[in-house]
């Protein structure tokens, strides 16, 4: 028994060491801290830099049009409705595709333009992140994974789009949508109640 325990201990110290290395290696955007800056091309080739949009609220939406959780929000028109509603209120909305070439959801610029048109989507731009470096900087794990950045460039919301982690289209109606809830409060100059919520969706196909 003693021997067993000491071997466990040795292994566990090993794990502890590995764990620390891994933990330090991980990017962790935090609420209230500066959101990682980035520059990415959109589907027309134009480059967008996050810090150019300081003075505005920015929404980042991780996107994969073939993911059933994303389909739920596009087929019902929910995502387009949010994009349009808050564009009219001066919010900058970026849809970011971090799928690697050959993986589900990856789109070449012309394909991205086409599908955006077909879905009648209205983000400021669809940003292409095929090497996934921006997705990893934000630790974006699923589609749709949502982030809101305030005019000071700080992250004020990260997580799920709403409180119904399903692929069922009927669940859009009646869901508590954290993006519209947060944006309404923020645009009204008020604090937000829910600034993080366990995100749901398909894994980002890095």
């Amino acid at each position: 028994m003693k021997n067993q325990l000491s071997s466990i201990l040795i292994l566990l110290f090993g794990l502890l060491f590995i764990g620390n290395v891994l933990a330090e290696d991980r990017n962790r955007p935090e609420i209230g801290k500066k959101a990682p800056d980035f520059t990415l091309p959109d589907a027309t080739g134009k480059k967008h830099t996050l810090s150019d949009y300081e003075d505005k609220f920015v929404v980042l939406e991780w996107l994969n049009h073939d993911c059933p959780f994303v389909v739920k929000h596009y087929a019902t028109g929910n995502m387009q409705m949010l994009q349009e509603k808050y564009r009219d209120k001066g919010v900058v909305w970026f849809s970011i595709i971090s799928s690697a070439p050959g993986k589900q959801g990856y789109l070449k610029p012309d394909q991205a333009r086409k599908i955006t048109r077909e879905k009648n989507a209205g983000p400021r731009a669809v940003l292409l992140d095929p090497d996934g470096h921006v997705g990893r900087a934000y630790d974006a794990r699923v589609t749709p994974h949502m982030y809101i950045i305030n005019p000071q460039g700080q992250l004020v919301y990260m997580g799920a789009i709403d409180d119904r982690p399903t692929t069922n289209h009927d669940d859009v109606e009646g869901a508590r949508n954290f993006i519209s809830e947060a944006l309404d409060l923020l645009l009204d100059g008020r604090g937000i109640e829910i600034n993080t919520y366990q995100p749901y969706g398909c894994t980002v196909k890095y």
Partner: peptide
Amino acid sequence: FPDSDDIYFYPHKQGMIEHTAPQIATATD
């Protein structure tokens, strides 16, 4: 005490723990 270097806690609820993080088990007497 199970003689294992692979002890792992699965919470019933989502959003409790960092699922990817290694879990560090330490056994004493």
